[in-house]
């Protein structure tokens, strides 16, 4: 029983990170109909910025904030400079551009920060809380991960639901032309959307790095998991992305915890889930099938 709870909690924690990454993909897909394959290396870049600050003696929290802000800046600049020319064009162009960006940023990280494995700190302990003499499998770090993702999501919901800017961003996502006619500066909203998405992506990158090692390609597996989570949710639905992330996190954690040599099967399991979802419900769990054509 303890083991089950432990595996479940691990799955939820990991799932939260997948959710955040999937949410970053979904935000961009909704507003520009582009799958941002560069999301992973963009997040890796900001994690390395944080690491450089920490190594220079700054606190984890200063590094976190600077990383998130630089994520916003990076996302906005990437949209304005690199994505804008291919927006609204053939889908393949955007795919090639984001794939190229993915490789380029990863190479840039290796040039600037080196390609060796470096340990990334976590602000909280990884030992479980003690309740009544026995250790429960809930750690301060997993609480931090779950809490920070939840807070970020709550802020995003508040922004989209309750502010004029959020309203304009949603309008732009549904129909750029109509939004434009209503006086919405659609271009600015797209830039903002990419910036916010990159912040969420950066957060997931920082969280998955915490207590582990980082190297230029350390986000590669998260790209796969985040993408699968987004597809499970339907690619169009932020709520779907979050639920998709949690489902995937749990599923992979159970595979890892209960299947013999499961740890080697985790990536395969993710792809199996992807294929099953695409076969059974190609629109994802949270979107009407007709909503997605691409």
């Amino acid at each position: 029983m303890d083991y089950f709870v432990n595996v479940t909690l691990t799955g939820l924690t990991q799932g939260m990170i997948y959710s955040a990454f999937a949410l970053a993909l979904v935000l961009i897909w909704r507003s520009t109909r582009i799958v941002n394959f560069a999301q992973g290396s963009m997040a890796a870049a900001t994690t390395f910025i944080a690491l450089a600050l920490i190594q220079a003696g700054q606190s984890y929290w200063v590094a976190l904030i600077v990383a998130l802000l630089s994520g916003f800046l990076l996302g906005a600049v990437v949209e304005r400079v690199i994505i804008r020319p291919v927006e609204g064009g053939p889908e393949l162009n955007a795919v090639i551009v984001t794939l190229g960006l993915f490789v380029a940023i990863q190479a840039l990280i290796a040039i600037v920060f080196g390609s060796s494995f470096q340990s990334f700190p976590t602000p909280f302990g990884v030992r479980g809380f003690e309740v009544g003499g026995s250790t429960i499998p809930l750690t301060p770090t997993s609480l931090y991960v779950i809490g920070s993702v939840l807070i970020t999501m709550a802020l995003l919901v508040a922004l989209f639901r309750f502010t004029r800017i959020g309203l304009a961003m949603r309008a732009s996502a549904f129909s750029q032309e109509v939004a434009r006619l209503l006086g919405v500066k659609v271009g600015g909203m797209l830039t903002l959307g990419w910036g916010l998405a990159a912040v969420v992506g950066s957060l997931s990158g920082l969280l998955i790095a915490g207590g582990g090692f980082v190297y230029p390609a350390y986000m590669d597996s998260l790209i796969v998991f985040g993408f699968v989570a987004a597809i499970i949710g339907g690619l169009d639905s932020p709520v779907g992305a979050i639920v998709g992330g949690l489902i995937l996190g749990l599923a992979l954690s159970y595979v890892n915890g209960y299947v013999e040599r499961g740890s080697a099967l985790v990536s395969v399991a993710a792809l199996v889930i992807l294929i099953v979802v695409l076969l059974v419900r190609p629109g994802g769990l949270f979107s009407s099938t007709t909503a997605r054509r691409a």
């Binding site: 004029r164 309203l167 304009a168 949603r170 309008a171 549904f174 129909s175 109509v178 939004a179 209503l182 006086g183 919405v184």
Partner: peptide, 19 residues
């Protein structure tokens, strides 16, 4: 009509008052 499908009627009109 060109209304935004995923936004409520009120939100749709609010976008019109955006400026």
């Amino acid at each position: 009509v060109g209304l935004f499908p995923g936004m409520t009627v009120l939100e749709n009109v609010m976008v019109g008052a955006h400026r």
